[in-house]
């Protein structure tokens, strides 16, 4: 398990992370989404021992990460800006990984290289950007570590490749109990891949939840009545947002869909529609309910207005 407690990291006067707390359980694909500058890359680098926290701590399997090789052996990091040895090919890089990661598997490496159809002998600086990302992913997954960190790695991959990587990750998670932490600035990129999602905003985790739970816990209800009504009619429901135009009301409701429909049906509405929300909408409404407004730039990380 990855645990972050009051994690804070500053770069000069800029606070990249402020009092960040989160738990990333083992055996899941954990997605972290946030705008540019939210602190996603900083968090990943702290988890991999690249940075040292200014305050707080981040631990993996109970051990502090920074400058701790026994813990770091369990982690491999695929950054947003990739690094390869100059004039190297995949084979050369594999040797580097083999030297660094005790459980590196050549069998896995060859298998994945074949799956992704990458020439292991070709110089990496002749690869396209997407191919380089694939190569980095192959090397990371071949390291057979318990934790794999991808920093915006999937951004820019074509759908076919994304599916390929996703299925490979699933195999690892299922077979080895591996944990993958993926960051992105796009929810759509993570929606199909991750089973846990967290939203980072200005240096803190403002919201995290199971993806399935997110998708089903909130829904939109469109209802119309012949008489006058307001939000108070629906006191039995957990309403996050209520808007009314004429006789038609739109509500964002949290709860069990079937029960909510039943309750409203009893009120004999003229119109009743229960619609699913996209993840983006779920996030937006959840954040609003927590008191985060994107018009308030001073509210940071773990703070609420």
């Amino acid at each position: 398990m990855i645990k972050a407690r009051k994690l804070t990291k500053r770069f000069g006067e800029v606070e990249a992370l402020v009092n960040l707390n989160c738990n990333i359980p083992q055996g899941c694909i954990y997605g972290m989404v946030g705008a540019n500058g939210a602190g996603k890359s900083t968090f990943l680098r702290l988890c991999n021992g690249v940075y040292q926290p200014d305050e707080g701590s981040v631990s993996i399997n109970g051990g502090e990460v920074f400058d701790n090789p026994p813990i770091k052996e369990h982690c491999v990091f695929v950054p947003d800006e990739l690094y390869f040895l100059p004039q190297s090919n995949m084979l050369r890089m594999a040797k580097l990984y083999e030297a660094m990661y005790p459980r590196f598997s050549w069998e896995r490496f060859n298998e994945l290289s074949g799956t992704f159809r990458l020439d292991k002998n070709r110089t990496l600086n002749t690869f396209s950007k997407g191919m380089r990302r694939q190569a980095a992913t192959i090397l990371a997954l071949s390291s057979m570590t318990d934790y794999v960190f991808f920093d915006e790695t999937f951004d820019g991959l074509d759908p076919v490749m994304r599916n390929l990587v996703k299925s490979t990750l699933y195999d690892d998670v299922l077979e080895r109990g591996c944990t993958a932490v993926i960051t992105s600035h796009s929810l759509r990129e993570l929606e199909d891949t991750c089973d846990q999602l967290a939203l980072l905003y200005q240096g803190g985790v403002v919201f995290e939840s199971d993806v399935q739970n997110l998708k089903t816990s909130l829904f939109k209800v469109q209802v119309a009545f012949s008489d006058e009504y307001d939000e108070s009619r629906f006191d039995e429901l957990d309403i996050l947002s209520f808007t009314k135009q004429g006789s038609v009301a739109n509500m964002i409701v949290r709860g069990e869909r079937g029960r909510s429909r039943e309750l409203i049906t009893k009120m004999d509405p003229l119109l009743l529609e229960v619609l699913p929300l996209t993840l983006e909408e779920v996030f937006l409404y959840e954040m609003e309910s927590l008191g985060y407004y994107f018009e308030e730039p001073k509210a940071k990380g773990g703070e609420r207005t």
């Binding site: 021992g49 690249v50 090789p69 770091k72 052996e73 982690c75 950054p79 690094y83 660094m100």
Partner: peptide, 18 residues
């Protein structure tokens, strides 16, 4: 690797003590 961000981050992420 200490003069480039990507290189530095990579090397410091490796499971080797500093």
């Amino acid at each position: 690797f200490l003069t480039k961000r990507a290189d530095s981050d990579y090397y410091h992420s490796l499971p080797v003590s500093r």
